[in-house]
C-alpha cells in the first residue's frame, strides 16, 4: 500500500534521516514516532510529495510518487495538520472551503463520536477552545471520502478524554489506511504498528 525505500533527507546541510525504509499495508493504522526534529511530520509530507527526499523512493498504491502520479496519489489522501491557521470563522465555512457541504450528516456523526454537539459547526473558531477547534477540523477532514488518512500530531491540542474519543472514532473507520506522526503514548499504543525514528 505505502512502500518507502532507502529515504534520505538533508536540510540546510544537516542530515535528518538516512536509509529509512518502511511498508504500510492497506487498512493498517501506523504511527511514526520519535523526538522532535527527527522528521516525523516531514515524512508525512513526503508521502504527498510536498517534501522531496534527496535519495530513495516512495510508492503509494503501487504508484511511484513522481510528477506524473502525484495528482492521483493526492486524490487518495486526507491531510490533517496540527494547529493550522484557516481563513474561515467556523466549521461550516471550512466545509464550504473544502467543497464538502453535502457531507453535513457525516460530519455531524463524526463530531458526536469526538464528543461535540452539531452546533459546534456554527461556532466561531475564536470563541471555542483549541481542542474543540481541532476536533471540528478533524471531523470535517475525516468526512472526505479517501482511502489514506495522514494525521500530524492529532493529539496535540486535546485532553485525555478527547484523545480517547478520537482513538475510538479512528478505530471505527473501515478500510482506511492511517498514518500519524505522534509521540503520545496512548495514541501510539492504539495503533497497529510504530515506526520509530
Amino acid at each position: 500500500m505505502i512502500k518507502a525505500t532507502n529515504l534520505e533527507l538533508n536540510f540546510s546541510g544537516k542530515q535528518i534521516f538516512k536509509d529509512l525504509s518502511f511498508f504500510i499495508k492497506k487498512g493498517e493504522n501506523v504511527c511514526i514516532s520519535g523526538p522532535s526534529g527527527k522528521g516525523k511530520s516531514t515524512i508525512l509530507k513526503m508521502l504527498m510529495a510536498y517534501v522531496i527526499p534527496n535519495e530513495g523512493s516512495i510508492k503509494v498504491n503501487q504508484l511511484l510518487v513522481n510528477p506524473e502520479n502525484i495528482k492521483t496519489i493526492r486524490n487518495k489522501i486526507i491531510w490533517i495538520p496540527q494547529n493550522i491557521n484557516l481563513p474561515v470563522n467556523n466549521g461550516l465555512e471550512l466545509m464550504e472551503l473544502l467543497n464538502l457541504t453535502n457531507q453535513r450528516n457525516r460530519v455531524e456523526e463524526l463530531l458526536h463520536e469526538l464528543g461535540l454537539e452539531s452546533s459546534f459547526l456554527n461556532q466561531d473558531f475564536a470563541q471555542i477552545s483549541g481542542g474543540q477547534k481541532q476536533r471540528v477540523i478533524i471531523a470535517i477532514c475525516l468526512s472526505i471520502e479517501k482511502d489514506i488518512i495522514l494525521m500530524d500530531e492529532p493529539t496535540s491540542s486535546l485532553d485525555e478524554d478527547a484523545i480517547n474519543k478520537l482513538i475510538s472514532c479512528v478505530s471505527k473507520l473501515k478500510n482506511k489506511t492511517i498514518v500519524s506522526a505522534s509521540h503520545h503514548l496512548g495514541w501510539m499504543e492504539s495503533t497497529d504498528k510504530i515506526i520509530e525514528l
Partner: peptide, 19 residues
C-alpha cells in the same frame, strides 16, 4: 501549510489557491 491543506483535501489547485 494552508495551501498544502487545501490542495490535499480538495484535490483541486484552483480551490487551494482561491483564498
Amino acid at each position: 501549510e494552508l495551501y498544502i491543506f487545501l490542495l490535499s483535501n480538495t484535490g483541486n489547485k484552483k480551490l487551494a489557491l482561491n483564498p
